[in-house]
Simulated assay, not measured.
Amino acid sequence: MTYPPLGDMLATLRDTTPLVHCITNYVAMNSTANILLATGASPAMLHAPEEVAEFTAMAGALSINIGTISSPWAASMELAARSANDTGTPWVLDPVAVGATAFRQQVCTALLAHQPSVIRANASEVMALAGLASQGRGVDATATTDDATAAIALAQQQRCIVAMTGESDVITDGTHHYRLTGGHPMMPRVTTLGCGLSALVAGFVAANRDEPLAATMAALACFSLAGSRAGQQARGPGSFQVALLDALYTLTPEDLSSLNTLEALHAV
């Protein structure tokens, strides 16, 4: 099996330093910005309805995370998503805990109408969006990524890429499917890493617009490899977060090119 040139994706991101417009939650703003900066992208955190549409049109990509959603922020998110769709700007949806409340489901339904380029979510969130289940407790996954069916179904429904992340990750465009293993068990002990990963996907897609599936895979591979390396030296969640930023910063295209934890899924 020939895999996409993931190392080239990282090199292009660092050469172009794409601007990523992040409408994310209060908890995640700082850590998300640092993850983007450490890897080589440029973050911006804007959420005022008076400027989000205009700024989205100028950005390389948009990342929307509904973690601490409110009605004013929901309005800004929809304005930004509409602008992205109108201007051909790639955008990523992180539907945090979409299965938990009716409000979150309503917000995500409105956002999906603006055709996200990528949905990055855990298994429970993917299942909820795909209509296969409506379970979920907060941001924690109550399902696993062992079964890729929901991710493939959602990708086909929305005609976008779905990155379903967990103990292993499934990346699919509805036709081509991959599983990625790696990371570290300490990653769920550090808040907002998934939020930062969604923004990182947006950065990779911004830098590699012609290959959004491979770009998404490269973003997840960077995170997985950096997480594995951080876990080897961290003593706990606090030092892990610092080590993760350092690992993202020191990753090389050659590291991704030699990755051996990616496999194609031929039948699910």
Rank of each mutant, 00 (worst) to 15 (best):
P18D: 09
A133W: 06
W91N: 00
G194S: 02
N34G: 03
L245P: 00
A57T: 08
P95A: 11
D86Q: 12
A206I: 11
A61R: 00
A97Y: 06
T89K: 11
S198P: 02
T261H: 09
L111W: 01
A44L: 13
S124D: 09
D86S: 15
T261W: 07
S258A: 14
M217W: 02
T17E: 10
G238S: 14
C222R: 01
Y249M: 12
P90I: 03
F223P: 01
T68R: 07
A130Y: 01
D94E: 12
T142H: 10
Q106M: 12
V126Y: 06
M58E: 12
L193D: 00
A226Y: 01
L111A: 03
A102L: 15
G67N: 05
E54D: 15
D8C: 12
T191E: 05
V268L: 13
R120Y: 01
D140A: 14
A141I: 08
G174E: 08
D94V: 12
T181L: 08
L36I: 04
E54I: 04
L62P: 06
A41E: 03
L46V: 15
A264G: 09
A97H: 05
P185H: 07
A48N: 11
D169V: 08
V139S: 10
T216V: 11
D140V: 11
R104M: 07
S239W: 07
A41K: 03
M1F: 11
L13Q: 08
Q105E: 12
A59E: 05
L193T: 02
L10I: 10
F240P: 03
E78L: 14
V107A: 10
S258I: 14
I35G: 00
H21R: 07
T101C: 06
L248E: 04
A128T: 14
D140F: 09
C195H: 03
M58H: 12
G227I: 09
R189A: 14
N34D: 05
P237I: 12
T12S: 15
N34H: 05
S224I: 14
L10D: 06
A153K: 13
R159W: 02
L36H: 02
F240C: 06
T109F: 06
P237R: 13
G196Q: 00
A163R: 04
T142D: 08
T16V: 14
A163T: 09
A202S: 05
A219T: 03
L197T: 12
Q233Y: 09
L37T: 09
S76V: 10
G99P: 02
A59C: 04
A234L: 05
Q241I: 04
D94A: 09
T56C: 09
S134F: 11
D255M: 08
L46A: 15
V268T: 12
I161V: 15
A214T: 13
F204K: 01
V139Y: 01
S228I: 08
L180R: 02
G7M: 10
P188Y: 07
R159H: 15
L225P: 01
T149N: 10
E254T: 15
S198M: 03
A202L: 07
L112M: 11
A163G: 11
M187P: 00
P116N: 04
M187S: 04
M187W: 02
D255L: 06
E125A: 10
F103T: 14
L154N: 02
S117Q: 13
A218M: 13
T2C: 03
P212F: 00
V27M: 09
I171E: 00
H266M: 09
A123K: 02
A97K: 02
T145M: 12
S228P: 01
A57P: 02
Q241S: 14
F223S: 11
M127F: 04
R120K: 13
